[in-house]
């Protein structure tokens, strides 16, 4: 029981770590956002998986069923998904503006440009 019983959590943790890795290690801002959304989906699993009951069914009340999975995480995650896409769009809009301002969406290049600008400002 114990080994299998926590399997869903482990998947969640793996996805979480992978998303975190992409966010930290990859320089391109669009890719960082993809990593962030993977991180986010792992949180969906973290919420939904404990609510499942084996033998239960989707929480739509009917006379034929007696065991239902937990509806509360579903509600929370439903709203989280839609907020997630809205914030993802906001992030993408920021990336587009950054690309237009700097000519690049790579984190390293942007930081290098900022440093150069700071140095020039000090020189004058």
């Amino acid at each position: 029981m114990s080994a299998f019983g926590h399997f869903s959590y482990w998947i969640t943790m793996f996805l979480l770590a992978a998303g975190l890795y992409i966010v930290i290690a990859r320089g391109h801002l669009v890719k960082k956002l993809v990593g962030l959304s993977i991180f986010q989906t792992s949180v969906y699993l973290l919420y939904i998986a404990p609510g499942k009951l084996v033998g239960g069914t989707a929480p739509i009340i009917s006379d034929k069923f007696t065991v239902y999975s937990n509806p509360l995480p579903h509600v929370l995650i439903l709203t989280a998904i839609v907020v997630g896409i809205a914030t993802l769009a906001l992030g993408l809009a920021l990336v587009v503006r950054i690309r237009e301002a700097y000519g690049s969406a790579e984190e390293d290049e942007i930081l290098a440009q900022d440093e150069r600008a700071a140095r020039d400002a000090r020189a004058t």
């Binding site: 969906y44 939904i48 239960g56 989707a58 739509i60 239902y68 995480p73 995650i77 998904i81």
Partner: peptide
């Protein structure tokens, strides 16, 4: 598979 049909529907159309 986890019985979250509403969420799955949203995830498929949104994600």
């Amino acid at each position: 598979a986890l019985d979250a049909v509403d969420v799955a529907m949203t995830e498929a159309s949104v994600g």
